[in-house]
Write a protein that binds this DNA or RNA. Structure first.
Lengths: 121, 121
DNA sequence: TCACTATTTCGAAGTCTGTCTAAGTAGGTC
DNA sequence: GACCTACTTAGACAGACTTCGAAATAGTGA
């Protein structure tokens, strides 16, 4: 069960609406905006980068607290935001909690920004 | 000449640091976060979509005000945020101001989210 | 069970954002 | 020039976000 993982997984509902696509609906825009809001913070961006770039593909909170001059609760808060956006997932193993990125969510964003033909005029 | 275009073009400074990459610096993270902050609003997301999806590749403000139940100044504010993030560019032609997306900025974002090998262990 | 560590949740203070109305600027028409 | 439309800027206000310290929860080991 997911006591830790209060993931809304916002990205999963609507799949791959491209930026170029017909017309993003109000709801879809709100969900997508939520994901970007999660990314719209330097700390969260670096956290995501640290997790994504870690050799084993995952990082524990103790590894993520060091690089920042921020309190533990603050890091935890940012991780929660990333989690709720469906960008990362956390798993407790013994004393520590390990986070890893959700590749599908990242790939989906890449797809969103892929312009089939940049402004064909 | 840019009387209208107070574009900071945040995305141009650092090129294509991938999410998987070595380690995003503090400055780079701040700049990137600025771009995502611009995208972190449903209205701006839909504005960008409307501009990107328009047949001619550009849209005038008058076309962009209709779909929203928001005042003109509010739409103008959101367009300014997108402009300052380097995501769109505006040009006045006669009475109307036309906006178009900056393909390079969009492509750069796509690159950022492209995971060469999702978690190469 | 008790103490200790790791992490999250809670509540509060300060700051930023989205929205509005009112006013200003640019361009076109009479 | 006077007036109209299109758009932006300025100022104000409510609500959301970031951050913190303190307290709560989860797990380990004596």
């Amino acid at each position: 069960m997911s006591k830790l993982l209060d993931v809304e997984d916002v990205t999963a509902r609507e799949c791959c609406a491209p930026l170029n696509g017909p017309a993003i609906g109000e709801g879809e825009a709100a969900e997508l905006a939520q994901v970007f809001k999660a990314l719209a913070d330097p700390v969260r961006l670096r956290l995501l980068n640290l997790i994504a770039a870690s050799e084993s593909g995952e990082a524990c909170v103790c590894d993520l607290t060091g690089p920042f001059e921020l309190s533990g609760p603050t890091i935890s808060h940012h991780l929660k935001v990333l989690r709720q956006a469906g960008l990362i997932t956390g798993e407790r193993r013994g004393t520590w909690v390990y986070y890893r990125v959700m590749p599908d969510a990242i790939t989906r964003l890449s797809t969103f920004f892929t312009l089939p033909m940049a402004a064909p005029a």
